[in-house]
Amino acid sequence: MSIKSKLGLGVATAVLGMGLIGGGTFAYFSDTAEASNTFAAGTLDLAVDPEVIIDVDDLSPGSWMIRAFDLVNNGSLDISEVLLSTSYEVEDAKGDNTDDFGKHIRVNFLENSDKSEEYGPNDIIFSTTLYELQQMTPDAVEKNVIGFENEGSGLPAGTQDTMYVEFEFVDNGEDQNQFQGDKLSLNWSFEAR
């Protein structure tokens, strides 16, 4: 082989080698993976069972009555507090009221029995008139007594708390004739947070 051929073959080999080296720096393996993500908000769904807690007629001073109802968490999230708001309207039958009928209807207690302890009830409200209760927003699922026998504060998803309430038309020992025939419509609103 002539020197020219050898030189040409050497140059061609060098060019091929450089091409492989240069090509090797640009060659690589690759793979791709994708992730699908979802953000779904949970739900708060609080129910009161039964929806009508009390409906009574023919009250007289000194009358009292106890009722039971459940606060039910039908949602997917735990409820940390349930705030109770009170409002009411009075229908004055004779138009002679000089006082608010709500000042004479007292909530002797509102007890969350699921949070009570063997030695004492878990009273959310204790001896408060409807008139005074309008200015309060107690937490109906708060544990107010010390102890470890029953549930702590809150209302976990899929559970319920049984509540007991006692209402009394307070006999103040005075003339309460102005309330004869009157009607008080009570609205309790329970707000889950």
Score class of each variant (00 low, 15 high):
113 S>R: 00
83 L>C: 01
153 S>T: 14
177 N>I: 13
67 R>F: 06
115 K>R: 10
73 N>G: 13
83 L>D: 04
122 N>G: 08
161 D>R: 03
73 N>A: 13
129 T>H: 13
84 L>A: 07
157 A>I: 01
167 F>S: 09
160 Q>T: 00
131 Y>C: 06
154 G>S: 05
102 G>C: 08
108 N>C: 05
134 Q>T: 15
51 E>D: 15
82 V>C: 13
96 D>T: 05
114 D>T: 00
143 K>I: 02
51 E>L: 11
53 I>E: 08
136 M>V: 10
89 E>C: 04
62 G>R: 04
98 T>F: 05
131 Y>N: 15
75 G>T: 12
164 Y>A: 13
160 Q>G: 05
136 M>T: 07
158 G>A: 11
125 I>P: 06
87 S>Y: 08
78 D>W: 03
106 R>V: 10
71 L>F: 01
99 D>M: 02
72 V>K: 14
148 F>R: 06
74 N>L: 14
48 V>T: 09
130 L>M: 11
148 F>K: 11
121 P>A: 14
152 G>P: 08
68 A>C: 11
96 D>R: 00
98 T>P: 00
64 W>M: 07
89 E>P: 02
154 G>E: 12
188 W>Q: 03
92 D>S: 03
186 L>E: 09
126 F>G: 02
75 G>K: 10
52 V>C: 07
48 V>A: 09
188 W>R: 03
97 N>P: 01
100 D>S: 05
119 Y>D: 15
65 M>P: 00
92 D>E: 02
115 K>G: 01
140 A>H: 07
65 M>Q: 14
126 F>W: 06
84 L>D: 09
141 V>H: 09
135 Q>D: 15
130 L>A: 10
74 N>E: 15
168 E>A: 11
91 E>T: 10
116 S>A: 12
157 A>Q: 03
184 L>T: 01
106 R>L: 05
77 L>K: 14
73 N>W: 03
94 K>S: 15
93 A>W: 04
142 E>I: 03
164 Y>D: 10
67 R>E: 15
81 E>S: 14
68 A>K: 15
85 S>I: 03
160 Q>C: 01
116 S>Y: 06
124 I>D: 12
132 E>I: 01
91 E>V: 01
161 D>T: 05
159 T>E: 12
120 G>I: 04
128 T>D: 13
57 D>F: 05
85 S>Y: 02
106 R>F: 07
86 T>E: 14
107 V>L: 10
